[in-house]
Design a protein around this nucleic acid. Structure first.
Length: 270
DNA sequence: CTCTTAACCTGGACGC
DNA sequence: TGCGTCCAGGTTAAGA
């Protein structure tokens, strides 16, 4: 489900309800996510106050004075803020019970998500090696160009590598490459500085526009109040196989690149 | 280091 | 209706 815009939409939805609240208790119905939810989680966070709700790449970070909860939504994860007496439904794996009587509930059918405790989240192994945020000033066309030198990998896989730039997933990789006019299968090392400048800008623009629209709902994404995102209406190639290209009218193609479905216009992208 | 592949898991869509 | 197959927004661990 979630790429950067969906995670950011989630963050913006939960932050006002969580910041300053204390954790009253934790209910773990099923600890079997990508990694086991720590069995002693309740003892770790009970009574502590949430100082801030941050996002790094596709991770949400609930900061406490004593450490942080790292939450990843995987492919199908969803966070909701609900009244404390809301009955649990299938795949409601974890509840954080807040001191105002409400709960933060994690639902994740496929269980590719994660919920981990860390004393120092910035140095956590899952976080430390991440590349820059797309909105960070160091993320530029020159940065991409330098990192790409000598690499034969398809540029779509290159920009989806979280060590290169964090937060670009399968939807927005296709969309950004379309906006930049770059063929997704082109070798990353065979693209010039100028075109990388356009790609860096396209990545930022498409992510920004999607955040403004509340993210992309393909099947089941909702924000923490249950509302879908509307950026699906602005997608130009993703999910549009065999439909006309919005720019030139030629047919949008679908092709597997690095075992992920990729969408592009062979006439507009080279 | 670079790159590819398999694996984790459930559910919905589709064809027969 | 039921059953098999394929597909899905992510990421890492293993191996070449």
């Amino acid at each position: 489900m979630p790429e950067l815009p969906e995670v950011e939409t989630t963050r913006r939805g939960i932050a006002p309800h969580l910041t300053g609240r204390r954790i009253a208790d934790v209910i773990i119905r099923n600890p079997k996510l990508r990694w086991p939810v720590p069995a002693d989680l309740a003892e770790r966070v009970r009574g502590w106050q949430i100082q801030a709700v941050r996002r790094r790449a596709k991770y949400l970070v609930l900061e406490f004075d004593a450490g942080a909860l790292l939450i990843h939504l995987g492919m199908s994860g969803n966070l909701r803020v609900l009244p404390g007496d809301s009955p649990a439904r299938p795949h409601d794996h974890v509840d954080l019970m807040l001191d105002d009587g409400r709960i933060l509930r994690l639902n994740d059918p496929r269980r590719f998500g994660a919920l981990l405790w860390t004393a120092d989240w910035r140095s956590h192994p899952l976080i430390a090696g991440l590349g820059p945020e797309p909105f960070d000033e160091v993320f530029t066309g020159d940065y991409l160009y330098e990192r790409a030198q000598g690499r034969q990998q398809a540029v779509k896989n290159f920009i989806m590598d979280a060590r290169v730039v964090s937060g670009v997933g399968n939807i927005y990789a296709s969309e950004a490459l379309f906006r930049a006019g770059i063929h997704p299968a082109r070798a990353a090392g065979r693209i010039g500085r100028e075109r990388y400048g356009r790609l860096a800008a396209a990545i930022r623009e498409v992510l920004e526009a999607s955040i403004a629209a509340g993210g992309t709902t393909l099947r089941d994404f909702t924000d923490p109040s249950g509302k879908p995102g509307y950026f699906v209406l602005s997608l130009q190639v993703y999910g549009r196989a065999d439909l006309p290209c919005s720019r030139c009218g030629s047919t949008v193609r679908q092709q597997r690149i690095g075992q992920r479905s990729s969408f592009f216009c062979a006439r507009c992208q080279h």
